[in-house]
Amino acid sequence: VSFKITLTSDPRLPYKVLSVPESTPFTAVLKFAAEEFKVPAATSAIITNDGIGINPAQTAGNVFLKHGSELRII
């Protein structure tokens, strides 16, 4: 599955597209996205474009099915 993750704390709204296997734990996606944007993973969260928080204790495939591919990291 592929996710387009936007960094909301930067006024330029940079984004990265990450492709991972469906079975990947979403905690790993969060950690990798945080490292890519050089923000601390421990204090970061991934939310939907509607501002709904995503529980990272599920697979990337589940997140994709529930929330789609466009996400934000805060």
Rank of each mutant, 00 (worst) to 15 (best):
V1K: 03
V1A: 14
V1Q: 02
S2L: 04
S2D: 14
S2P: 03
F3Q: 00
F3G: 00
F3D: 00
F3P: 00
K4L: 03
K4I: 05
I5Y: 01
T6S: 09
T6I: 04
L7D: 08
L7Q: 09
L7I: 04
T8N: 12
T8K: 10
S9Y: 07
S9P: 11
P11E: 15
L13R: 10
L13T: 08
P14T: 10
K16T: 14
V17K: 09
L18I: 14
S19K: 02
S19Q: 10
E22D: 04
S23Q: 13
S23R: 10
T24S: 09
P25Y: 13
P25M: 13
F26Q: 00
V29N: 01
V29G: 00
L30D: 02
K31I: 09
K31Q: 10
F32C: 14
A34C: 15
A34W: 14
E35N: 12
E35A: 11
E36T: 07
E36K: 12
E36A: 07
F37L: 05
F37R: 02
K38N: 12
K38D: 11
V39G: 02
V39E: 07
V39I: 12
P40I: 03
P40E: 12
A41I: 09
A41F: 06
A42K: 10
A42F: 02
T43Y: 07
T43S: 14
I46V: 04
I46K: 01
I46P: 03
I47D: 04
N49V: 04
D50V: 03
G51T: 01
G51C: 03
G53I: 14
I54Q: 00
I54Y: 01
P56S: 13
A57L: 10
A57M: 10
A57P: 05
Q58F: 09
Q58P: 00
Q58R: 09
Q58L: 12
T59P: 04
A60N: 01
V63R: 02
F64G: 03
H67F: 07
H67P: 02
H67L: 03
G68C: 01
G68E: 02
G68K: 03
G68I: 00
S69N: 04
S69I: 03
E70I: 03
L71C: 02
L71F: 13
R72F: 06
R72E: 10
I73S: 01
I73T: 02
I73K: 01
I73D: 01
I74L: 04
I74P: 04
